[in-house]
């Protein structure tokens, strides 16, 4: 399978990268891990005249230090997340990184790539949504930040402007004060696009019983990863446990907007939202208690 012909540039810093993109306009595509872009180019789903390889832009691999609000450079890989995000208190993101594609794909696939490809089933997108993450964008006219929820606007669509580069994803500063988890359902145990996924984040009150804050994000059950606000509402202020989790799971299922496709029916997906949400909540809650302790 052949790639179409294109020109290639590997800028050494951000301003050079932005300059190249600005110059080429919509004829250019930034290249991160390549696991989506190169496939889409081969399949003819994407065309471009210039590929701008971001690998040389060092700040795209930056990570926040200990004690800082978490910030993850766009070029950090899924494999890196699987290994390191847990240590940053972001277990849900680590789990999502660990079940994305195959080991080879995880070694290449990046946070930025997953966000910009914006698949409804994007594992990292869904996990970041649950962490109330914002994306940092740089363009010719400066930087801006957007919540992931506003960044992903449709299947394969984002709010990134022509010439902009996604620099980093920033989970909410308080994300590490809670616990998170990611659940994914596919046919096989690995190498799967999610049929349904659920990412949750919960925070405990000091009493170790009451849910202080929560976010539930759902993958592959809408045109974008969805935030199930009603599920969070069903949790906050209530004692954590079977009852609250069941209510949240039910609310999440109602919030889902699945469709029928060849992978599964809308109805089954909706049911699975409840199952995965409940399972993710159980795991996230025990992590929330550790974070509180």
């Amino acid at each position: 399978m052949l790639l179409p012909r294109f020109d290639y540039q590997r800028p050494r810093d951000l301003s050079e990268a932005l300059g190249l993109l600005a110059q080429a306009g919509d004829q250019a595509r930034p290249l991160a891990g390549g696991t989506d872009l190169l496939v889409n180019l081969k399949l003819g789903k994407v065309t471009c005249r210039l590929v701008v390889d971001l690998d040389g832009v060092a700040e795209l691999k930056d990570v926040s230090g200990p004690g800082e609000a978490p910030s993850l450079g766009a070029l950090l890989s899924a494999a890196w997340l699987a290994k390191q995000a847990g240590g940053l208190g972001l277990m849900g993101l680590a789990e999502a990184g660990g079940v994305l594609g195959s080991p080879q794909v995880r070694n290449r696939a990046t946070i930025g790539g997953n966000l910009c490809t914006a698949r409804p089933a994007g594992d990292l997108c869904t996990a970041l949504l649950a962490l109330d993450a914002r994306v940092v964008l740089a363009g010719a006219s400066g930087r801006r930040e957007l919540p992931v929820e506003q960044f992903i606007t449709g299947p394969g669509l984002t709010a990134i402007a022509p010439g902009e580069i996604l620099l980093a994803a920033r989970p909410a500063p308080g994300a590490t004060a809670g616990g998170s988890a990611f659940e994914k359902l596919g046919l096989r145990r690995t190498m799967e696009i999610a049929l349904v996924s659920a990412a949750v984040w919960v925070q405990s009150e000091a009493d170790g019983r009451t849910v202080k804050a929560a976010r539930v994000a759902l993958g592959a059950v809408g045109p974008t990863p969805l935030l199930a606000r009603a599920a969070a509402t069903a949790l906050v202020g209530r004692p954590a446990g079977t009852e609250a989790f069941a209510a949240a799971a039910q609310a999440a299922a109602e919030a889902a907007r699945p469709i029928d496709d060849h992978r599964g029916s809308a109805e089954y997906r909706r049911q699975m939202v409840a199952v995965l949400t409940r399972r993710a909540l159980e795991r996230a809650w025990s992590r929330a208690l550790e974070a509180t302790a």
Binding site: R188, R189, T190, M191, E192, I193, H262
Partner: peptide, 16 residues
């Protein structure tokens, strides 16, 4: 064919 790939036509992996 809707799923003409080894990503969407699922043969067992080592974990299955």
């Amino acid at each position: 064919v809707v799923n003409p790939s080894l990503g969407e036509y699922h043969i067992p992996t080592i974990q299955d």
